[in-house]
Design a protein around this nucleic acid. Structure first.
Lengths: 211, 211
DNA sequence: ACTATAGCGGAATCCAGATTCCGTTTCCAG
DNA sequence: CTGGAAACGGAATCTGGATTCCGCTATAGT
């Protein structure tokens, strides 16, 4: 959670635990900014402009900056949110009755979530650091590991796949969801299914060793 | 018309029509710029800076701009070159003894060429227009069509694949070659093979209809 | 209701890069 | 060997955006 303002506003107001009680309008504005940013970045990608975010939130630029010191901070907050959603889906998958289905659904979801958010997609593609941090924070590595293990145990996932392949696949799929090149437009769901087919056991090709 | 400066290269050198015969040093510099740009954009991606290109080419910024009025023009020239190479590979594939292998090799090549050139990769990912134009100019649509048809005739490629899926796949694969996210780093060749496996006939999943 | 402040708005500032301009240098036809 | 056009170099300019600043306004404790 990218900090908000600081601590001890008026310091020891008076009761006792009355820590960081944000002023009502401040909290309201912060929400407005997040909501506006979420939409703008999803629609226009990472180079949506701060002044536009402010306008969309019916707020002054200064306000945006008081809540998020930097454009990157704002983006990070948004990304964290998306990854949380992603992690939730992963948890669902791990608990699914059918391990293979759980994995498939997760992968489809990862593609879809990127198809719906150009900003997220761009972060995935060009900000390894941000993305990596967010993924780790959401506990995705462990979750992916669990998904893979279960799917393999069910016998439907090729044995030579490792959990590290999952984030890689998710990234790769994210790209095409945004690709609007003439003939390729709108057919990303097909690639998703092709990949899933390629993941089925036993896998006719031997995956190249790695690392 | 992002055209370059072409026309009548050496054509009609001396007699009457001696149109625009470029001065020797001019031609030399142009080559230097192209070479420098090729390397810089490949290494640093699309936001390599023009002044740096100039420096790398041992030339002044002005010179770069005389040859390429715009950064975009320079990029377009570079992209055209790469697509030419790609088209060549596609032709090889069409003539390969084994249709399936021809297709596989082409796809592997497409991934590799992007792995080696960050700039190209970024164009693929964020400049549909530029890329589309270049692809069309290189005759890739037809070539992809031929590749798919031959591979299917050989019986090894799933029947529900269409040529439009090829550029899409190439784009998708391009992305991961650049992804340096912790766990996913350096394992892109694995995704390539997974996809190829997914392309094998008969394809257990039914690809979603499209358009 | 009153005042000390947290918060606000948004014009002004800063910056990084692309692109322009023009005096100087180099090529080459005569 | 010369003159003039073609090319050069690179400092100066322009531009689009992020970020800062500061006087003003609304909130909340008394």
């Amino acid at each position: 959670m990218t900090t908000v303002t600081q601590e001890n506003p008026t310091a020891a107001s008076k009761p006792a635990v009355a820590e960081r009680v944000q002023r009502a309008d401040a909290r309201r504005n912060r929400e407005a900014v997040i909501a506006a940013a979420k939409k703008l970045f999803a629609d226009e990608g990472l180079d949506a402009q701060m002044p536009d975010v402010a306008r969309a939130a019916k707020v002054g630029v200064g306000t945006v900056y008081r809540h998020f010191p930097t454009k990157d901070d704002l983006i990070a907050a948004l990304v964290a949110d998306r990854f949380e959603r992603l992690a939730q889906k992963a948890r669902d998958g791990v608990e699914a009755a059918d391990g293979w289905q759980g994995l498939c659904d997760f992968i489809r979801f990862a593609a879809q979530i990127q198809a719906d958010d150009r900003g997220l997609c761009e972060v995935m593609g060009s900000r390894p650091d941000v993305m990596d941090a967010a993924a780790r924070a959401a506990g995705l590595p462990e979750l992916c590991h669990a998904l893979v293990t279960r799917a393999q145990r069910s016998g439907q996932l090729r044995k030579d796949l490792t959990w590290e392949d999952i984030p890689m696949i998710a990234c790769g799929l994210g790209r095409i969801t945004q690709t609007e090149v003439g003939p390729a437009t709108g057919r990303w769901p097909r690639l998703v299914e092709i990949v899933l087919d390629g993941l089925r056991a036993p896998g006719s090709a031997k995956l190249p060793r790695c690392l």
